[in-house]
Design a binder for these strands. Sequence first.
DNA 1: AGCCCGATGTCCT
DNA 2: GGACATCGGGCTA
Length: 187
Amino acid sequence: MKRLDREFYSQETIDVARALLGKILVHRLPNGRELRGRIVETEAYLGAEDPAAHSFGGRRTARTEAMFSKPGVSYIYFIYGMHFCFNVVTAPEGTPEAVLIRAVEFSDGGGNGPGKLCRAMHLNRDQNMRDLTTDQEVWIEDAPNIPENQILGGPRVGIGDRHDAVHWPLRFGVRGNPALSPAKFPP
DNA sequence: AGCCCGATGTCCT
DNA sequence: GGACATCGGGCTA
């Protein structure tokens, strides 16, 4: 299967968030085993203009440095003392936008949140700032698009009440997928 | 179904 | 010192 290329990640951030639904996140472990999960929930973070983004106002620190990378680079950060979250950088180098992968579905079923999926797929600091278009351990494979009428939009979750950013419709999920938390996608 | 809370490290003020 | 792009358990009903 073909891996997603630079052109894919160079689309508008919101379009990348929608287009990533249905694609396959792959982590090849040192022992050669591949962990694979189908992306079923994403969320866009619109860089300097987005009060909910780590890069709001153009903040550039050791942690947020990855967000300033080329499209297709991973941004993994540590949160709440115990969880990692996996993002893919979008927008041109120097423009700190990204898409958070909020849930994947495994072939044996089983849903996940952004922290759980990193634990399940053994993703941590070691996989930060990888170029997913060339990396030998982490990448995303192409797969059929989810039809527009099966994509749910929803308000954001877990970002407090920063301005109105909570209500921006930047979170997307695959309609009816059991890996989504249904309560967070109101009808 | 909801709400509250503790776990536990790192970042930023 | 407070907040945090989270999760699971325990509670109220």
